[in-house]
């Protein structure tokens, strides 16, 4: 096991913090959104579906560019924050967190839509007719029955955030301990011609990503296996 530099550990901590928070925030945001997408037939649905899928096709630079303009000190969000005495979000951890949440949105929403469609509206309607409140229905009916969908959504979100690069580079710069995630640090090492350091982190990420995907697919197969 090669020795990791303090800067590597710092980047690992930032990356894990970013991935974990993105996953938590997205599961909370994506659940109602996915439920709405799975069960409503309104004309707005197509539009919302397209918006959710946008980060899949847009270059990360487009997203990073607009986020930088919006969240920075001259942008509407940045100015509003500064007007109420808070710092703007460009080149901060909070800024790249907002970027990651948007960037990974389809990876959280789409598995959940799929799971909710499979579930259908019936179990929830039955629970409601038996007097279960909305929160009760979520925690005792939807969550246990769609467990697989939630696990897939969380894993994909986490893994996709791990692989994020363009948005963070544009919106976060490369500030150690703040916005320097692993992918950006590897880029930095390669640029400084420190190939040994770049190798050590790249290889680690390669193995980690492979293990996560193998675990995910074997879990998926088991889920499909038990389905009638």
């Amino acid at each position: 096991m090669p020795e990791l530099a303090p800067q590597d550990w710092q980047a690992i901590a930032v990356t894990l913090r970013l991935c974990a928070l993105t996953t938590i925030i997205l599961l909370v945001l994506a659940t109602p959104l996915a439920w709405w997408l799975a069960h409503r037939q309104s004309p707005a649905r197509t539009i919302v579906q397209a918006i959710v899928a946008l980060p899949l096709v847009l270059p990360p630079t487009v997203l990073g560019f607009y986020l930088l303009l919006t969240l920075g000190p001259r942008g509407p969000v940045g100015q509003t924050l500064e007007a109420i005495g808070l710092p703007h979000l460009a080149f901060t951890f909070e800024g790249i967190l907002v970027g990651s949440v948007i960037y990974s949105l389809p990876f959280a929403v789409q598995p959940l839509v799929e799971a909710f469609r499979q579930l259908g509206p019936r179990p929830v309607e039955v629970a409601a007719s038996l007097g279960a409140g909305p929160l009760d229905r979520l925690f005792t009916v939807i969550l246990p029955l769609c467990r697989g969908g939630f696990i897939v959504a969380a894993t994909l979100t986490f893994a996709h955030t791990l692989g994020e690069f363009g948005v963070i580079l544009m919106l976060g710069g490369s500030i150690p301990g703040e916005t320097q995630v692993l992918s950006v640090l590897i880029y930095d090492y390669a640029e400084a011609m420190d190939y040994a350091a770049a190798h050590r982190l790249s290889l680690g990420m390669l193995i980690f990503a492979f293990v996560v995907l193998v675990a995910l697919y074997s879990f998926n197969r088991r889920m499909i296996g038990v389905r009638p």
């Binding site: 930088l68 920075g72 000190p73 001259r74 940045g78 703007h88 460009a90 080149f91 710069g173 490369s174 500030i175 150690p176 930095d188 640029e191 400084a192």
Partner: peptide, 16 residues
């Protein structure tokens, strides 16, 4: 933080 001078200047103008 290292970078091209022009890029760093743009980042500073955008609040880095």
């Amino acid at each position: 933080i290292f970078g091209a001078s022009g890029k760093l200047a743009t980042q500073i103008l955008n609040g880095a």
